[in-house]
């Protein structure tokens, strides 16, 4: 085993020794987050290259979503440094698009699909500027890209889980970012939605954008993603899927919570 781990910590040390690589879409150093007394993340170093699709993987409670939220400044860090494209968060916000967990909002809120997508334009619209024709066209196009063009004036409470997820993705598209951060985008969605979402994400990558997603389905990692970051409170492994998504790294990350049979079915690179 510990080859992978050693490699990971070695990577971390390299990251620590050098200035943060400016070409990385997201680089995190020494991130520690705690809920009460218990650390949710401890001294995590992670680097996500730009222009590829990365997955954040780990067991339940490993701190995957926490990592994303702390990087975005949604929850406070005890310590740590975060750089987006080599810049601090405040200077990089306009390049970041975010898809929160679907279950984190009240879908009974009195608003429509197109209105939610237009929220992706609020940063540019400011407080009082009217929603222009260009913004509206952009929002409509974002809806079309996720296959929801017929739903613009639907009340959001009438959507299925998969449709809600598509609307959230459309809102992120309307943000026109360079980096797309998605928190469990495939949780509780139907197969058609999962396929539609992955198609949109792959198109983003083809357009030179960066995608980082919290992901829990190990069986699709190799199909969907180029780069993985395995985390369980500490950074366990990271790198290209071919070299870092190994049986050894997975059993280390999941700490025996995966059976040997399960691991075999995943066909990760042999570690």
């Amino acid at each position: 085993m510990p080859d992978m781990l050693r490699l990971a910590s070695h990577d971390g040390a390299l990251l620590g020794a050098q200035p943060t690589p400016a070409d990385a879409a997201l680089a995190v150093r020494g991130m520690t987050v705690s809920y009460g007394q218990k650390p949710a993340l401890f001294s995590v170093d992670a680097t996500f290259p730009s222009g590829v699709m990365s997955a954040i993987i780990g067991p339940n409670g490993a701190g995957k979503s926490t990592f994303l939220k702390a990087a975005l400044g949604l929850i406070p860090m005890v310590s740590g440094e975060v750089r987006f494209f080599g810049l601090p968060l405040a200077q990089a916000r306009s390049r970041i698009a975010y898809v929160p967990q679907r279950a984190s909002v009240d879908w009974d809120f009195p608003t429509t699909v197109i209105d939610v997508v237009l929220m992706g334009r609020y940063r540019r619209l400011g407080l009082l500027r009217r929603v222009g024709r260009a913004d509206l066209a952009l929002a409509q196009e974002a809806l079309a890209r996720v296959g929801m063009e017929g739903f613009a004036h639907r009340q959001i409470g009438q959507l299925s889980g998969g449709q809600q997820q598509r609307v959230f993705l459309a809102r992120a598209l309307a943000q026109q970012g360079d980096l797309y951060l998605l928190d469990e985008p495939f949780a509780g969605v139907d197969a058609a939605t999962e396929a539609a979402i992955i198609e949109v994400l792959k198109a983003l990558k083809a357009a030179g954008k960066t995608v980082i997603a919290v992901h829990h389905d190990l069986s699709t990692v190799a199909d969907y993603f180029d780069h993985v970051f395995l985390v369980n409170v500490r950074a366990m492994a990271q790198g290209p899927v071919a070299s870092a998504f190994t049986t050894a790294a997975l059993s280390q990350t999941y700490g025996g919570r995966l059976g040997a049979g399960q691991l075999d079915q995943l066909h990760p690179a042999k570690g």
Partner: peptide, 15 residues
């Protein structure tokens, strides 16, 4: 008000 009431996380991420 609308965005922060509907989706606090997204609002915060937006700055």
């Amino acid at each position: 008000l609308k965005l922060a009431s509907f989706d606090e996380g997204f609002a915060r991420a937006m700055g």
